[in-house]
Structures are given as structure tokens and as C-alpha cells.
Lab assay of single mutants.
Amino acid sequence: GLTEEQKQEIREAFDLFDTDGSGTIDAKELKVAMRALGFEPKKEEIKKMISEIDKDGSGTIDFEEFLTMMTA
């Protein structure tokens, strides 16, 4: 499992990506986040990433899903 410290770091990354503070990361926010990390993702790639992570089919990534992605 994760230490509380690791969870906190992932939470901070999540909050950075969640620019509108909605508690979820949408495609637009993910794209901005990827760019910040030096990637140039295409729209299809973003969609694919979200569909792989987005277990509940909401079209957005919540913290639990993000946590799973970061620790996979």
C-alpha cells in the first residue's frame, strides 16, 4: 500500500491538474497536465487515457481513479 506521504503527494498532483476545483479531472485538464509534463497528446490519446482510467464511465477522472493510475 501507499504511505500517507505518498498519498498526499498524489493528492497535490491531482489538485494541480483539477484546475477548476471540481474534484475530477476532465479531458481538457488532463491535456493541460500532460503538456506541463512535456507531452503533446492528441485528442484521441487523451480520450483513450481517460477511458482506460475512468472505471465508472463518467468521462472524468476522480481521485480514486487517479490514485489507481499513479500506482499501477
Rank of each mutant, 00 (worst) to 15 (best):
D18Q: 04
V32N: 15
S58H: 07
I10H: 03
E45P: 02
D15I: 08
P41W: 10
E65C: 14
V32I: 15
Q8H: 11
T3V: 03
D56I: 10
E64C: 11
I25L: 11
E44Q: 06
G57R: 04
K28Q: 10
K55N: 08
A72Y: 13
D15K: 10
T3D: 03
S51L: 13
E12H: 12
T3C: 09
G23P: 02
D18F: 06
E45F: 11
G21D: 09
A72C: 14
I46K: 01
S58W: 06
D54L: 07
M70E: 00
K7A: 07
E40Q: 10
T60E: 07
K43R: 11
D26A: 12
G23S: 02
T68E: 09
M49I: 10
M34W: 10
A13M: 12
S58V: 08
E64Y: 05
D15Q: 09
T60P: 03
E44T: 06
L16I: 08
K48P: 03
E9R: 15
E44M: 05
L30S: 00
E9D: 08
K28M: 09
M70R: 01
G59H: 06
G21I: 02
K7N: 03
Q8C: 13
L2V: 05
G57Y: 07
K7V: 13
F63R: 02
E5Q: 12
T60S: 08
E9L: 14
G1M: 08
F17N: 02
T60H: 07
E9W: 12
L67H: 01
I50A: 06
E9P: 04
L30M: 06
E12S: 12
T60I: 07
F66N: 00
D15C: 12
K48I: 09
K43C: 15
E45A: 05
E64A: 11
D62P: 03
M70L: 13
D20M: 09
M34T: 01
T60A: 08
I61S: 00
K43G: 14
L16S: 05
R35K: 14
L2E: 03
T19D: 09
I46V: 05
G57Q: 08
I46H: 04
S51I: 05
G38K: 04
A36V: 13
I10M: 12
L30Q: 00
F63T: 00
G21Q: 07
D56K: 12
L2C: 11
E9Y: 11
M70A: 04
S22N: 08
F39G: 01
F17E: 00
L30V: 09
G59E: 05
S58D: 06
E4T: 09
I50W: 07
K7S: 04
D56G: 07
F39L: 08
K48F: 07
I10F: 12
G1E: 06
F14H: 00
L37M: 05
G57K: 08
F66P: 00
F39C: 13
A72P: 07
K28W: 08
L16D: 04
G38R: 03
I46C: 13
F17T: 04
R11C: 05
I50L: 15
D20W: 03
A36T: 05
F39E: 02
F63N: 01
F14P: 00
Q8T: 08
I61N: 00
S58F: 07
T3H: 02
E40P: 03
A13L: 13
I46M: 08
S58L: 08
G59A: 06
E65H: 13
I46R: 01
E52A: 12
V32F: 15
E52V: 14
I25G: 00
D18H: 03
K31Q: 15
L67G: 00
R11L: 04
T68D: 07
G21E: 03
M49N: 04
L2P: 06
F14V: 00
E40D: 15
G57E: 12
K31Y: 15
A33N: 01
T60W: 09
E52P: 01
I53L: 14
S58K: 12
D20K: 05
E52N: 10
D18V: 06
E40Y: 12
I46S: 02
I46Q: 03
R11Y: 02
I53R: 06
E44H: 07
K42A: 10
F17M: 05
F63L: 04
E4Y: 08
I25R: 00
F63K: 01
L37G: 02
T71D: 04
T24G: 04
K47D: 15
G38T: 02
K42W: 09
M69I: 12
E64S: 07
I53W: 13
A13G: 03
F14R: 00
G38C: 13
P41M: 14
E64N: 10
D20F: 05
K28Y: 09
E40K: 12
E4D: 12
K42P: 07
E64F: 07
K55C: 09
D56E: 09
E45V: 09
K42Y: 07
E9M: 15
A72G: 12
E64M: 07
L37E: 03
M69P: 00
E5K: 09
E65K: 14
I10P: 01
E4S: 12
S22K: 06
E45G: 05
D54C: 15
E64D: 09
A72M: 12
I61T: 00
A27R: 08
K47G: 09
S58M: 06
A27H: 06
M49Q: 04
D54Q: 11
L2R: 03
D18R: 05
G21Y: 05
E29M: 14
E65M: 14
F14D: 00
L67S: 02
D18T: 09
F39P: 01
E44I: 05
E29I: 11
I46P: 01
L2D: 02
F14K: 00
G1D: 05
R35Q: 15
I53M: 08
K31T: 14
Q8E: 07
L37T: 03
P41E: 05
R35G: 10
K48V: 10
S22E: 01
A36G: 05
I50D: 02
I10E: 00
L2I: 07
E45T: 07
G59Q: 06
G1N: 06
I46N: 01
A13Y: 10
T68S: 11
I61L: 06
D26K: 08
Q8D: 07
M49R: 03
T71L: 14
S51E: 12
E45H: 11
I46A: 02
E64W: 09
S58G: 06
V32H: 15
T3L: 03
F14T: 00
D18C: 10
A36D: 06
T68Y: 10
A33F: 14
D56V: 09
D62G: 08
L30E: 00
K28V: 05
E45D: 11
D62T: 15
R11W: 07
F14C: 04
A72Q: 09
I46W: 13
D56L: 13
M34S: 01
F66A: 01
I25C: 06
E45M: 07
T3Y: 04
E52H: 10
T24A: 03
T60G: 05
L30P: 00
K48H: 11
A36E: 08
K7W: 12
K42V: 08
K48R: 08
A13N: 02
E65P: 01
E64G: 07
L30G: 00
G23M: 03
P41I: 14
M70G: 01
D26S: 14
D15H: 06
A72S: 09
L67P: 00
V32E: 15
E12C: 14
E65V: 12
I61F: 10
L67R: 01
K48L: 11
S22C: 08
G59T: 09
K28S: 09
T68Q: 14
K43I: 13
L37S: 02
F39A: 02
F17P: 00
E40M: 12
Q6A: 06
T24C: 10
F17G: 13
T3S: 08
A13R: 04
E29P: 01
A27Y: 13
P41S: 06
